[in-house]
Design a protein around this nucleic acid. Structure first.
Lengths: 341, 341
DNA sequence: CTGAAAGCGCTTACAG
DNA sequence: CTGAAAGCGCTTACAG
């Protein structure tokens, strides 16, 4: 291993000076700096981050806890975080979180994140419980939450209630009155979650228009395409009058619903209008009307907040729009149309 | 920060003994071990991995380089790797790689991975160039490749040529003779890649059956659903006789092709049989015949190999089936049927 | 079975 | 502007 002592010897300076020259901390004569830099380059020296963090107390490493990697929203967020972190010279240590209460999940908070290996934690779409937040606080980890719930810490998120409301109002505006909702699991029970808030926005919009959806018109499902497919089969396969419009809590659910409609001989949008949420990369191909969000950007913003919490000066301060919900936008495509007369 | 000295003082032993008791290395009286353990638990002590790695030379951290996170195969592999690494007490540091030659990519190999922060690297589906492999070797990082190409190191992969051959033979066996292929970008040019090998298997099977596909029957595309959609529109929209079967290089491409067929009024499988590759979580919903592979398992196996290279004794040795290709399996669903007479 | 000491590779006051 | 020294938190020979 080539160490800083080797660089110092080659450049004819002390280790302290070599360190200062390479890190940019403290005064070093230009000429000395150049000599040190070329010595380092000659022997391929790169400082050991572990040795440095031992003395500085900073690891330049951020832990990301995330429940899925393989769902569009989460994957996009993760890529956004990764790019931003790397650009800032930070590492990303990934913890794929299982459900609450599972021992592997406990171990992530009590062991992996509790060690002095990460400076901060970004929690993406996770519903943190109190003991988890407490574990992080005890170890003085900066915490930034993106979506999800729990943790009084810095939180970035879209306004999920407003998203549900907007999607529903779009359908109401098209003249629909019987509008069903394919909600995420637990939407009815837990109000303080993404799913609960989207459902709430839907109900608000319906109530404001003087409609009160029957319980049968709200079906909870996994936020996946097969989940949406099954839920929509159940919703639409029922004999008797059908809803004329559907608000799906995510685009993947909407795609599944489109396929279910097709299977049942229901033509979209003639017989059924569908609106999703996400702006999934496949939305355009499916001609899906959706409320877009921008997870890659959200990830990048979460990194900005983390870096600011860690006192990195290179980050603009104050952050633009801090505190405001992250942007969303209704994109109308041909999956939604005027209600049949 | 609570350090090992605090534990030692509380337990009334030296730091050396506390270290031995907690790590399990070296002899410690049972009674002493219990005292140290309970002292550590009392004050919430967890060893700093950075300090430990400074002296052991081991970081217990593995770098994963991967070109996508948001494609089904890659996401599954990543989750498999993550679970296996965590179970072994290792961290996973994620590097989302861009294309060859991009400066961010160079920086990953020359800086991030070159530092003493990871013990080993798992490259998932990346075509490594020589300088990248050399950079890793110079720093003595264990390297395990999963798919992709380049690097003489330990490599795990399915037999992509055999996969292409099997999918094609399935269609031939059903009586098809004009079978098109939706291949990955670069399949025709680079033989030593996943795409190139699948295409090669297709051509081998066709040749063995006495057919020589016209160049127009092989279309290269992005390995995505929209990519498959566009490529299939191009392939199938052409006036004149159409192929009766299609081998898509991935399930997502196959899904896109199914949608294109529908749009063109071509009924699957009556007018067109389709076979994919992957065993994507949506394959069942789409009734897609496919050659399944098991990326989660592949990720786990890659971790086994890494741990073995790092000399971890807890891993079975020798590994089952070492050197053999990873398993795949043809799963027949209703997207493929007998050729029209 | 246990402890004192050295040392891993850095950075940072402290002098000069 | 530069160097000598201390020290971050661990682990590991080396004695005993």
């Amino acid at each position: 291993m080539v160490a800083i002592g080797d660089v110092a010897r080659l450049a004819g300076v002390s280790k302290a000076t070599a360190s200062r020259a390479l890190s940019g901390n403290g005064y070093v004569a230009d000429e000395t700096r150049r000599r040190v830099e070329s010595a380092a380059a000659d022997i391929g020296y790169i400082a050991s981050p572990d040795a440095a963090s031992l003395v500085t107390g900073r690891t330049k490493n951020v832990g990301v806890v995330i429940p899925f990697v393989n769902r569009w929203f989460f994957g996009e967020v993760l890529e956004g975080i990764e790019r931003a972190l790397l650009a800032a010279g930070y590492d990303l240590t990934l913890y794929n979180l299982s459900e609450r209460g599972r021992p592997e999940r406990t171990r992530v908070f009590e062991f992996f994140l509790a060690r002095k290996r990460v400076d901060a934690v970004i929690a993406v779409g996770v519903d943190l419980d109190e003991s988890e937040v407490a574990a992080l606080e005890r170890r003085e980890k900066a915490l930034v939450c993106l979506g999800g719930s729990g943790g009084a810490a810095a939180r970035l998120s879209i306004d999920d209630r407003a998203v549900g409301q907007l999607a529903t109002e779009h359908l109401l505006h098209l003249g629909h009155s019987r509008i069903a909702h394919l909600a995420g699991i637990g939407a009815g029970g837990q109000l303080d979650t993404v799913h609960g808030r989207r459902r709430h926005g839907y109900l608000d919009a319906m109530a404001a228009a003087g409609h009160s959806p029957s319980p049968a018109d709200i079906v909870e499902t996994d936020m996946t395409m097969p989940g949406g497919y099954r839920a929509a089969l159940q919703l639409l396969g029922h004999p008797g009058p059908r809803p004329t419009a559907l608000f799906a809590a995510s685009d993947e659910v909407a795609f599944g619903a489109m396929r279910a409609a097709e299977r049942l001989g229901i033509t979209v949008p003639r017989d059924l209008s569908i609106v999703g949420v996400d702006g999934h990369e496949y939305a355009e191909m499916f001609d899906l009307t959706t409320v877009e969000q921008y997870p890659g950007e959200q990830g990048r913003s979460a990194v900005d907040v983390v870096l600011r919490l860690l006192g990195d000066e290179s980050v603009a301060d104050p952050l633009p729009d801090s505190g405001a919900p992250m942007p969303t936008r209704l994109v109308v495509r041909s999956s939604s149309t005027a209600a049949p007369r």
